[in-house]
Structures are given as C-alpha cells and as structure tokens.
Write a protein that binds this DNA or RNA. Structure first.
Lengths: 106, 106
DNA sequence: TATATGTGCAACTATTCGGTTTCGCAAATT
DNA sequence: AATTTGCGAAACCGAATAGTTGCACATATA
C-alpha cells in the first residue's frame, strides 16, 4: 500500500477535503455534507490523508475534528523547487532578451 | 480516463522521469536506461505525461526527444498557493510569540 | 437503561493502473 | 533491397483504488 502525499493528492475528492478543512477543522459528517458521496467513503479518504500526515485528528467528546497539517504540504513545495529553479532561470533568459532589445533600440 | 497533473505526478517513475528530463530533453530509450523497467512502460508513462502537457515531444529524424513543459508545473504551484498562505500566516503567528517572549525578557 | 448519534472498519465490487508481450511502422544502416 | 533501430499502440494480466453496504463500538441523550 503506497501512501505518500503525491498519491494522496491525486484524488480530486481528497484535494477538495484539504481545501475545505484548510481554514478550520471539521468532523467527517460535516465534511461529507459537502460531497455527493457516503460518509464512509469520506472516512476512508480521511484515513489516507491521516496516514500520510496531511491531516491530523483532534478528538472532542465523540466527535473527531480533522485539521490540515501544513507541514507535509511543504514537502510538495520542496519537490517543486527543482522545477521552480528552471522556470525562474527561463524567465531570466527572457529578461536578457528584453534587455538586449532595449539596448539595441538605443 | 482521468488525466491531470496530480494523477500524473502520483507515480514515482513519472516523477523521476520529470526530474531526469528537466535539464535536458531525452529520447524514450535513453530515459528507459535509467529505470528497471521496459521501454514500453516508459513509453506509456511518457504518453500520460504528454497528454496532460507536463512534457512535450520534439521529433528529430526517427528519434523523439521529450522535454519538460515547465508551464504546467506552475499549475501545481498555483494549487499550493492556498496552503502557502496558511503556513506563512502561521509562521507570522510564531513570529509574534517569539517577539512577545523577547519583550517579556527585558 | 434504552435509544440515538458519530465514527471507524471489514468485506465486496467495478474500475483503473502499471507492467509485460506482441505487433506494426518508419527512419537509418548495411 | 534487406536488416537494424527507435518508437507507439493494442491486448492482456495482476494489483491497487474508490465506492457501497453492513457492522461494531463508544459517547451522548431520553
């Protein structure tokens, strides 16, 4: 059972859950109300998100609040960094071209 | 057949391919040499990456060079932005606490 | 204590996914 | 012209995935 953030965010429902609870923690039932699927399937998604630590639980009586774990999101950001370097350098290339055009105009 | 960047980068082999060709375009055969799998399976991965435009082809005789399409990577960055806002604001919260501690010390 | 509520878990199913094998085709090489 | 090389596409297979249904269990509420 592969369980990493990349596989976790591959599912559109899970991405929507993450967005939903980003600003405030919510219970499974409350989350399920926002979707056209059963509470159990949401529960399954939450388990997957919990397993890869994108989300953490906070028990409160018999209710369980799920909240975003931003820390793990940073891993995704970290992976993106290698490509960000590239698109930034390509932007610089464009910058050079523009500068060249400017100086040629003079 | 769902085919978006999130599903595309969910597979570790595809992520490795992206990293591999990030700096220079490569042919399927050259790419396959870096992996413990058949050329055909790499070809399949490349098709998926091409379909969601994370990669583009450049025919050169009978060889096809695959190169990274940075533009699509930015979509991922864009999706991350909503969470980046959160972790930046939480960092600021921590900042406030640290400042408070500092002033209390005095 | 009996019932309702909030939740997770296991079993089952249809679908998707990643890999292999086989094939076809066009461009290079002999 | 015959062969080799580089490649994609289709058929097939086992494993994984997302969903449903049914159940168990603990915490609230009557």
């Amino acid at each position: 059972m592969r369980r990493d953030i990349f596989q976790a965010i591959a599912d559109p429902t899970r991405r929507a859950i993450l967005t939903l609870i980003a600003l405030q923690a919510m219970t499974p039932n409350a989350i399920a109300e926002h979707f056209d699927t059963s509470r159990q399937s949401i529960s399954k998604h939450l388990r997957i998100l919990t397993e890869c630590e994108l989300v953490k639980q906070k028990q409160q009586g018999r209710e369980i609040y799920y909240q975003l774990e931003v820390k793990k999101m940073k891993e995704l950001d970290k992976w993106l960094e290698q490509f960000r370097k590239i698109w930034e350098s390509r932007f610089n290339e464009l910058d050079k071209v523009l500068n060249k055009l400017k100086t040629t105009k003079k």
